[in-house]
């Protein structure tokens, strides 16, 4: 039997002709109404632009900002004065020396450990890590296709 294109088209037409509409979920209307209510809910003044704020809030904000800037400038000036003293500078230098010594010791220790491990182990660990990554990716793909796409 030959299933020509026209025959197939009229066959599918015949199949879908009587197909009724799918029933919309009962939750659809409630969702739309809830979204509309959310869109039309009055937005509080603090979530709107500065020009829409009440006058008192705007004045209070400007005063608070001025105070904050004054405080920040005073703080920076006092830090500069403090750092400028000789004792503080010496303390900072000694702390920096301790820090660099600790870092170099850690780097030496790590390189010692790495050189002690056979290269084969390192390659094995890299391959194992890659395989686990690929496995996780594959599991994620299967889970997505099974649980979400088929929903």
């Amino acid at each position: 039997m030959s299933n020509g294109p026209e025959k197939l088209e009229s066959f599918v037409d015949q199949l879908v002709r009587g197909q009724p509409l799918r029933r919309a979920p009962a939750t659809l209307e409630a969702r739309v109404l809830a979204q509309l209510a959310l869109q039309h809910a009055p937005i509080p003044w603090w979530r709107r632009g500065f020009t829409h704020w009440p006058l008192t809030a705007r004045v209070a904000f400007l005063i608070a900002s001025y105070g904050f800037v004054r405080l920040a400038i005073a703080g920076v000036m006092s830090i500069i004065t403090f750092v400028g003293s000789r004792e503080v500078a010496e303390t900072a230098v000694s702390w920096a020396h301790v820090g660099t010594t600790a870092v170099s010791a850690t780097v030496s220790l790590c390189s010692l450990i790495v050189s002690a491990i056979p290269p084969l182990w390192l390659y094995g660990a890299a391959v194992c890590g890659f395989a686990l990554y690929a496995l996780l990716f594959g599991l994620g793909t299967v889970a997505y296709r099974t649980l979400y796409v088929q929903r």
């Binding site: 509409l21 799918r22 919309a24």
Partner: peptide, 20 residues
């Protein structure tokens, strides 16, 4: 119209959650 709109989206996507 809700059934018509939902049907259009559901048949095109093949996924009821996305259609909603």
């Amino acid at each position: 119209y809700q059934d018509m709109v939902f049907s259009t989206a559901a048949r095109l996507t093949g996924n009821d959650a996305q259609a909603e």
